[in-house]
Lab assay of single mutants.
Amino acid sequence: NQASVVANQLIPINTALTLVMMRSEVVTPVGIPAEDIPRLVSMQVSRAVPLGTTLMPDMVKGYA
């Protein structure tokens, strides 16, 4: 089972991601792979992401 990136806190719209905002977790459906966490740092979210939400490619500007 592949771990995905999950929000560790509420991430407001247009916030630049930092390591403390993200954790890896095995979830369904699968989201952005956990190994991409270093690449996500400083990228902005395109919408508010609630705590515990799996990050999907369309939620991060410039990821897809």
Score class of each variant (00 low, 15 high):
Lys61Phe: 07
Glu25Phe: 05
Leu40Asp: 00
Thr53Tyr: 14
Leu10Tyr: 08
Leu19Arg: 10
Val60Lys: 00
Ala48Gln: 12
Asn8Cys: 05
Val6Leu: 14
Pro29Thr: 06
Pro50Asp: 15
Val30Lys: 07
Ile37His: 03
Val26Phe: 11
Ile11Arg: 01
Asn1Thr: 15
Asp58Cys: 15
Ser46Trp: 13
Val5Ile: 12
Thr15Asn: 04
Val5Ala: 13
Ala64Lys: 15
Arg23Trp: 03
Ser42Ile: 03
Asn8Phe: 06
Ala48Pro: 14
Gly52Asp: 07
Leu51Pro: 11
Tyr63Asp: 03
Arg23Gln: 10
Glu35Ile: 08
Leu55Cys: 02
Thr28Lys: 04
Asp36Met: 14
Ala3Asn: 15
Gln44Tyr: 14
Ser42Leu: 08
Ser46Thr: 13
Glu35Gln: 12
Gln44Glu: 06
Leu40Gly: 00
Gly62Asn: 10
Gln9Lys: 11
Ile13Cys: 05
Pro38Arg: 09
Ile32His: 01
Asp58Trp: 12
Asn14Ala: 11
Thr18Tyr: 03
Leu55Trp: 01
Gln2Tyr: 14
Thr53Gly: 11
Thr28Phe: 06
Asn1Gln: 15
Ala3His: 14
Thr53Gln: 14
Thr15Ser: 08
Ala16Ile: 06
Val41Asp: 03
Pro50Lys: 10
Val26Tyr: 11
Pro57Phe: 08
Val20Tyr: 11
Asp58Leu: 08
Ser42Gln: 13
Asn14Pro: 01
Asn8Asp: 13
Pro38Asn: 13
Arg23Glu: 03
Ser46Cys: 06
Ile13Trp: 10
Asn14Tyr: 09
Asn14Trp: 10
Lys61Ile: 09
Pro57Cys: 13
Pro57Arg: 11
Lys61Tyr: 06
Val26Glu: 15
Ala16Glu: 05
Pro29Leu: 07
Gly52Pro: 02
Thr15Ala: 07
Ala7Thr: 15
Val45Gln: 00
Ala7Cys: 04
Ser42Gly: 12
Leu51Glu: 12
Ala7Asn: 01
Asp58Gly: 09
Val30Arg: 04
Leu17Val: 03
Val20Gly: 11
Ala3Gln: 13
Ile32Cys: 03
Thr54Gly: 03
Ala34Cys: 09
Leu10Ala: 11
Val20His: 11
Thr54Met: 03
Pro29Asn: 06
Met59Ala: 12
Leu19His: 13
Pro29Ile: 06
Asn8Tyr: 05
Gly52Trp: 05
Glu35Ala: 11
Gly31Val: 02
Lys61Ser: 13
Ala7Leu: 03
Ile11Trp: 01
Pro12Val: 06
Ile11Phe: 02
Ala64His: 15
Ala64Gln: 14
Gln2Phe: 10
Arg39Asp: 05
Arg23Thr: 07
Gly31Tyr: 02
Ile37Met: 12
Gln2Lys: 05
Ala3Val: 06
Met43Lys: 10
Gly62Arg: 07
Leu51Ala: 15
Thr54Cys: 04
Ala3Met: 10
Val27Ala: 06
Thr53Lys: 07
Val27Trp: 03
Asp58Phe: 14
Arg23Ser: 06
Thr54His: 03
Pro29His: 06
Ala64Arg: 08
Leu17Tyr: 01
Ile11Ser: 01
Ala64Ile: 12
Ala48Asp: 14
Met56Asn: 07
Gln9Thr: 11
Met56Ala: 07
Leu10Asp: 14
Val45His: 00
Val6Gly: 01
Ser24Gly: 09
Glu25Asp: 13
Asn8Leu: 06
Met59Asp: 15
Thr54Glu: 01
Ala16Tyr: 08
